[in-house]
Simulated scan of single mutants.
Amino acid sequence: MLYQVKDWDDAYANGIHIPRGEDFPAQWEAAAAAFRATARREELSSGDLFLPDTTPKGLAVFIHGGFWMRTSPAAWSHLAAGPLARGWAVAMPAYTLAPRARISQMTREVAAAVTSAAERIPGPLAITGHSAGGHLAARMICDDGTLPDAVAARVRCCLPISPLGDLRPMMRTAMNDTLAIGDAEAAAESPVLLAPCADIPVTTWVGAAERPEFIRQARLLADIWAGLGAATDCVIEPGRHHYDIIEPLTLPDSPMTRTLLA
């Protein structure tokens, strides 16, 4: 069957295609606030660092989504619960949102936050993120010096969730009135157009009930990077949509959390 996108705005619209999608933001904020009330938390230069009760086994990084225009780490704090329960520290970087910043600036800001957190927490690194945060998670391990060599060498897994690895379709949406992505930035900031660092396993993860474009993007990143020598996998989880695909990170023994920290 031929696949063709004719309405690019609808292709990347999530909430209107999810039953009671409008209820999820309030649920996330409530869960995050409850988690923050009891968690051991320190401030990063931008964002939060959550600490386990014992010496951390390593550092997990979660980068929030919102199409590079919305939300903040505070709305996603509860997603640190799974890695924390397994003894890992969890960094949740903040970054300046569009239109105040271009995506290239967001990449630099997140890389600086990851580097700062890595200086405080020794051991292996595991990087994940959701949607636009999935793009930034993949962007962290591109072989172009985004992360310092010593930090990149510590990364043991990259797990982009519902990632937007190719920015060029975003240029066809109304969101680009705010994002202002041009051809040069799309070429420089799309992970699918860049090479990954060597020896970092990459698993893209997406819900089978997501919009077809998110599934295509997840497959695309895994397939292209496999062709460049990376060890990759693409998990399409049955029954999950764009808003609940991240919930397994709250659980220490979920397949997603285990894959991230493997």
Rank of each mutant, 00 (worst) to 15 (best):
Q4I: 13
K6E: 15
W8T: 14
D10N: 15
D10W: 07
A11K: 13
A11I: 12
Y12S: 05
A13F: 07
N14S: 13
I16N: 11
I16R: 14
I18E: 07
P19A: 15
P19C: 12
G21A: 05
G21H: 03
D23M: 09
D23W: 08
P25Y: 11
W28H: 02
E29L: 10
A30H: 07
F35T: 00
A37T: 15
R40I: 11
E42A: 09
E43F: 05
E43P: 03
S45W: 03
G47Q: 09
P52C: 05
P52E: 09
T54N: 01
P56Q: 10
K57A: 14
G58M: 06
L59E: 10
A60H: 08
V61K: 03
V61C: 01
I63L: 09
H64G: 08
G65L: 02
W68L: 06
W68T: 05
A74M: 09
A74Y: 08
W76P: 03
W76A: 05
H78Q: 05
H78L: 00
A80P: 07
A81R: 15
A81V: 14
G87T: 11
A91G: 05
T96S: 13
P99Y: 11
A101P: 11
R102F: 14
I103R: 14
S104E: 13
M106E: 10
R108W: 00
A113H: 01
S116A: 14
T128A: 02
G129V: 09
A132Q: 00
G133C: 11
A137Y: 01
A137V: 02
A138F: 00
A138Q: 00
A138K: 00
L147K: 02
D149F: 07
V151F: 06
A152Y: 07
A152G: 11
R154D: 05
C158G: 09
L159G: 04
I161S: 05
S162V: 10
G165N: 13
P169G: 02
M170L: 12
R172G: 04
T173C: 06
N176E: 10
T178D: 15
E185M: 04
A186H: 01
A186S: 06
A187Y: 06
S190C: 12
L193H: 03
P196D: 04
C197D: 03
A198T: 05
A198G: 01
P201D: 06
P201T: 06
T204C: 03
W205K: 00
W205V: 01
W205Q: 00
W205A: 00
G207W: 01
A208I: 04
R211N: 07
E213L: 10
F214V: 12
F214E: 12
F214M: 14
L221Y: 03
A222P: 09
L228T: 05
A230G: 13
T232R: 08
C234P: 00
V235W: 02
E237C: 05
P238C: 04
G239C: 04
G239Y: 05
E247P: 02
E247W: 07
L249H: 10
P252I: 09
P252H: 11
D253Q: 10
S254Y: 11
T257Y: 08
L261V: 05
L261S: 07
A262V: 06
